[in-house]
Design a binder for these strands. Structure first.
Lengths: 118, 118
DNA sequence: TCTATAATTCCATAATATTAAAAATATGGA
DNA sequence: TCCATATTTTTAATATTATGGAATTATAGA
């Protein structure tokens, strides 16, 4: 995950309709949901939903596969996890003992490379 | 963390200057950095930096305290963690066994309430 | 091929966010 | 009090993003 990927992912999630879509897909798990089901669950016009799905796709947060006439969307858990890791990278210079309230001590979220001094 | 808080936090982070500021503060840890140091590190004009710091403050991602003429900003690790938890809430309907690649099994990020079926 | 369904793309309009100069505010020291 | 430093607020121009109707593309079945 580089900075531009992270900004794309954060921008994609920083909007009510897209956050709703993404969280619905996170809850749905690997089986995903069809675009039509998303539109119905969230009460969005098809053109609006499609615009938001494109944003999420471009950010790498969702993918889809066609199944007959439906497009089945699902959350990309790997990208989500990479984003969470990026946000906390090098927290407190990699030194958990200086970290406020133990929030970056490695037990709470994935740390990419722990870069401890030798 | 409710939806509006999450959108505020994601919007705040979804912008290059603010993501840079926030990550610098995450790296700096609890001691934080003065606004002037941030401006110098990132090459931002004071008015621009101040605008972005206000956004981060309103989103609850940073706080500051005055120290003589300087305002020392630091990352709010608690809010950051709450955001990460919100994004993965109810992943795969709380059932880690259905989760793609083991990415929502509780070892990678904080799960708020694990809501397993009885 | 014709029709229905599922979803997307195109487009114009509306709404929101970013930038940074200039002015204002707060602090500390002479 | 006066001046320098540190930072914020105001403001206006600029740029980016969201919305949804209408047209379009893709699939499946009769």
């Amino acid at each position: 995950m580089d900075k531009q990927n992270a900004i794309a992912a954060l921008s994609a999630l920083a909007q009510e309709a897209r956050l709703d879509i993404f969280r619905l897909l996170v809850r749905a798990g690997p089986d995903g949901l069809a675009a039509g089901q998303l539109a119905e669950c969230l009460g969005l016009p098809p053109a609006t939903l499609s615009f938001h799905l494109k944003e999420l796709r471009h950010a790498g947060l969702v993918s889809f596969q066609r199944e007959s006439r439906s497009l089945i969307y699902s959350a990309e858990f790997t990208s989500m996890n990479a984003l969470l890791a990026y946000l906390t990278e090098n927290c407190c210079q990699g030194d958990a003992t200086t970290c406020a309230a133990g929030l970056c001590d490695g037990t709470n979220f994935v740390k990419p490379k722990s870069q401890k001094p030798a």
